[in-house]
């Protein structure tokens, strides 16, 4: 009964409140729908022609429907002002400070996710569309001192557990949408705009589930269906280890 909606695993700190709203709204839906259905069935049996050959000209004379309408309106006001608006405000306004978060740039393209870490210096290097090439899909300017230690991966996002992740999301070509169902986040990636999106992963991956899926939610062309990325949530130590490996292979390639 706890998960009667069949929601996916929740692996983030912000997911529970979203699930709570989903469940609340669906309870309202069930109650209303079942109420209406019972009314409909009763009416159809009780007022069928055989049972009730003469219709009543006036019909219902009470004002029950007004109370139902007011009830629904009140419930909606509560959902809106008590849950949706404050929780949304938390999503878009209470963005964690960069020094407390894992900051990542994600640039979507047909049909993959370019993931860009600032490296140990914590500074993102300059990018330029004219530098874009097959082995440099972000157009990262390696001559920029800030870019020297920048790590880029394709479709491979690693995050430390229990630390806020702050993603600056944009797109190179068309509108995409970053969807990570287990983190309860989804955000359109719009070319020409950089949009912050954040969450706190709370459940690290393990052997039975080595990665979480990243999906594209906005039609972006013929490869939309296979625009799949992988999120690995790991302990801070494992994450630092992974960063070190990436730095080493970067040094090797230069």
């Amino acid at each position: 009964m706890e998960n009667f909606l069949g929601l996916p695993l929740n692996a983030s700190a912000n997911g529970a409140e979203i699930d709570r709203v989903l469940i609340l709204v669906h309870w309202l839906i069930f109650v209303l729908f079942i109420g209406w259905s019972i009314f409909l069935v009763v009416v159809l049996i009780r007022f069928r022609k055989k049972k009730n050959p003469k219709a009543s000209y006036a019909g219902v004379r009470n004002r029950t429907s007004i109370y139902v309408e007011i009830g629904i309106a009140l419930f909606e006001v509560i959902l809106l002002t008590g849950f949706s608006i404050p929780l949304w405000s938390k999503r878009v306004n209470d963005i964690p400070k960069e020094q407390n978060a894992t900051v990542v740039h994600i640039v979507a393209e047909q049909f993959s996710w370019n993931i860009h870490y600032p490296g140990p210096d914590g500074k993102f290097g300059r990018t330029d569309v004219h530098l874009v090439s097959d082995d440099n899909p972000l157009g990262l300017d390696r001559n920029d001192p800030n870019a020297k230690d920048d790590i880029t991966t394709m479709n491979d996002l690693h995050l430390p557990v229990n630390k806020p992740a702050l993603i600056y999301l944009s797109s190179k070509d068309v509108v995409h949408s970053l969807s990570i169902p287990v983190m309860r986040i989804k955000q359109d990636a719009i070319p020409g705009q950089v949009i912050p999106v954040w969450f706190v992963p709370t459940v690290a991956n393990n052997d039975s589930m080595p990665t979480y899926d990243i999906a594209c939610a906005q039609l972006c062309g013929l490869g939309h269906y296979r625009m799949r990325g992988y999120l690995t949530v790991q302990s801070q130590r494992d994450f630092d280890e992974w960063i070190k490996e990436q730095e080493a292979s970067l040094a090797q390639s230069q």
Partner: peptide
């Protein structure tokens, strides 16, 4: 039409609230 439209209308509710729209949007 009545119950079927009812389902359609009611399921618009979680989509119309931003917070529950996050997991459901474009699904």
């Amino acid at each position: 039409f009545l119950p079927m439209f009812g389902i359609g209308g009611l399921t618009g509710l979680p989509l119309g609230l931003t917070i529950s729209d996050i997991p459901l949007h474009d699904t």
